[in-house]
Design a protein around this nucleic acid. Structure first.
Lengths: 231, 231, 231, 231
DNA sequence: AATGAATGAGACTTCATTCAT
DNA sequence: AATGAATGAAGTCTCATTCAT
């Protein structure tokens, strides 16, 4: 049985408005943004389907249908399917990067910066779940061009910065920076995947608890155990 | 999955263990397993290509070529591409499950069990990187049938058991079990992904360091900071 | 038939009458209908090949070639090969039904109606030999869907009506209606098959003679033996 | 959806013993003949499936399964699928020919010979319905070789002989022999097809009635209306 | 700007057939 | 005599893409 075709009817359902571009606009709770057409709809549909089924699993006809346009019209906006993924990839990466940059102060107390970092990640994963899922699923792939791959490392930069501060000020446990970064990023991604798989609900409480473990993972022995409910 | 496959001769054939499970017994470095023919070669090739390119990205002709057989010959071993992924999936899951079960003592000191757990994971990721990558990439997917999905949770069971012991004996920090499990599993997966992406080398040293962060993530304030080189 | 085809754009297209039905209006000898493109050409080619080789014997590439289009283009007009046969089947049935309905008066003298019926059949078999052959070859078949099968009986209706009139007015020999219908329809089909097999030529004279036997088969003893050339 | 594959499971059911060859043996009511293997089973299975689905619709694997042998084993008995149909065709034709020859006296009263002819046909259609259906469906076809086609006309010979006698003795109505043959053969085939389609039940009563129409179709005006119940 | 029509390439799958056992 | 294994050819169907409108 063809997996793709079986789920196609659902894919033909109404096009959801662009999550990525929508996020850039002023927040409106989290309701459906106003109907967008053309390019924005295309990118949004592509984001959704690529995130759900992967590059090879999402066909241009599917994406076009989700974007409420004819397959041929896709090529008014992009030159090829490859270009489309790369476009979506870069938009998603940029959105994540922006969210982190905007949400995390460049200076300040270590713990405060860590908390801000986690909050920014949390907010992004909540507001743009498809973008997050997409990035996670497509972090490699032959179809990603050089330009796209270049953006890759920039996401971890804010985390790396915080970790670096901690290591420099000896506020964190020893060990190499990569190990610490891995622990934080891994915990976050693990949480999102677990919620997406349905093992746990993505509640603020869960996020707070996982944040605590992540902090514990990197904080030094002497680091004050500052939690939200401790004075 | 195809209904027809239930009654097809090929589909009926008992599941002989492929090189995935076989690999657990007589260690042979880490190179490509010895050239095997027929079904084993097919499952091995499928494992490789599915892990590298995903379900939709790996075509039957590709897989057949990798298994050194004609595309039509694939259907002497499996009834459909769907059945093939599910077969590979189940074998990989079983191999991981076996590795964890065999490597982690059911009782004993908490820290010892944690270390054994990490070591088992580490060994599996080293010995069967393709199986690990495959499982990580295919943990969802419409093509996975009910039987395959059922195995899903059993992998986290050993981790959950260790965490549970720690919570019961109050040797771990408070918080819900899911958060702790996420921290450990997330750190491990994050490490593998980082190494696969080429950000860091998958050295024993790195693994030891990440293990330390993972332990720190879940260990309680009172938990003795027992490292391998501390008495 | 494929479930999906119900929602496919191609499947939705209204059934435009192909050259089968069109042929009934402006007679053009009996040669191949004028070269038409697109859907009409497809249905026509399908009619020809299905009639000649049967459903399984006529491949989509064959049909596409006969319709002067690429195999892939077939699927712009129909959702599947199944849908194609059913379309052709329904068109052919409709054409035959129309020919009979149009050619046979609903009332009037029994013999006149019988003659009109035979003439209508004769004309149809001459003008649309492929449609007749197709219907005869495909009167059963798993690929025919419910809608197609429903039309089945309507073809015999005009014959049944004439027979019924004769039985009611006691103008025909006794016996059950089915037996009489079988005799008439069987004689006609037998004639067409014999001519198609090359045993005899399909001349007007033959048709007249077979019509006479058919009439004799059902006419009562008292029925005036009215032939065309008897006063 | 593949038509063939959908009905395949049924085809794999137990092989029914050869109808054709069985008929040659002494009648045993009409129960299942003793289990036959090898070549007989093959020919019988082929007869069944070819009759049900046509040449292109019946695959060698299907036929082999119905004959309870491996597909490769088919080639122990026949050189190719083509040879298989031709073999089955010739057997069926021979069986029909034998039934007619044996059942119809070479001389005697016209009406008696006609009745015997009809009775022989009736018996054959009842005892070997698959053979009859096969012959009817495969009277043409590229796969039939010259030898097979040659047998074709011999079936109509007995009918032709009876008709000829009638024409010579002026016991039948005028008209060309072909027209009369067509009327008789057409009525019989029409009856069988109608019963196979489920429009009427193939009862002895129906057969008697259709025989009466067939006789009426060819009998001359002066021909005594000799029915079974008339003195 | 948008799209209906068209299609070469290629996907999954089955088939008829061969061959070594 | 029988068959498991293997496969080139072919079949149905989808896709990414072009082009005229």
């Amino acid at each position: 049985m063809n997996v793709r075709s079986q789920i196609r009817p659902a894919a033909r359902r109404a096009a959801r408005p662009s999550e990525i571009t929508a996020a850039a606009a002023p927040r409106r709770g989290r309701g459906r943004p106003p109907r967008v057409g053309g390019r924005a709809a295309l990118l949004d549909a592509a984001l959704t389907l690529f995130a759900e089924r992967g590059y090879h699993g999402a066909s241009i006809p599917d994406i076009a249908a989700a974007a409420r346009m004819a397959p041929a019209s896709v090529y008014r906006h992009v030159a090829s399917k490859d270009e489309l993924v790369n476009l979506v990839f870069r938009e998603a990466k940029a959105a994540l990067g922006a969210a982190l940059t905007a949400g995390v102060p460049a200076t300040g107390a270590l713990r405060a910066r860590f908390d801000a970092l986690w909050a920014a990640l949390d907010r992004f994963a909540r507001d743009q779940p498809r973008a997050f899922a997409f990035l996670e699923l497509h972090h490699h792939g032959d179809y990603l061009d050089t330009a796209s791959r270049a953006v890759e490392l920039r996401v971890l930069a804010p985390i790396a910065a915080v970790v670096q501060q901690g290591l420099t000020t000896r506020a964190l446990r020893g060990g190499s920076a990569p190990a610490l970064i891995i622990a934080v990023w891994g915990a976050f991604v693990g949480m999102i995947r677990a919620t997406r798989a349905g093992y746990v609900a993505f509640t603020p409480a869960l996020s707070r608890e996982v944040a605590a473990t992540a902090w514990a993972a990197i904080a030094g022995p002497s680091a004050p155990r500052a939690t939200k409910d401790s004075p």
